[in-house]
Amino acid sequence: MFTALFFMMVVFLLALDVPGLLRQGLKKDLVIYALFMLLAIYLSMVQFYHWPFFNPFLELAAKIQTP
């Protein structure tokens, strides 16, 4: 359910931004936008499906906690 809602939100954002970029022929902007959107989707999948994720801050905090 939550994943479906998330993908609806992604589609909404794509519909909001991509047509304008295509119309203006801003290819570089489109590539950067796509890269950030893919990163956002990947991070969401990490959260939804508990994929492995290296969190340097948490590793450091755990080390500080147990000297």
């Binding site: 998330f6 939100m9 992604v10 954002l13 909001l16 931004d17 304008g20 970029l21 902007d29 950067i32 936008y33 950030f36 959107m37 990163l39 956002a40 989707i41 991070l43 969401s44």
Partner: peptide, 8 residues
Amino acid sequence: IMVGPTAI
């Protein structure tokens, strides 16, 4: 245009 992806 970067507001959307960074929001997620």
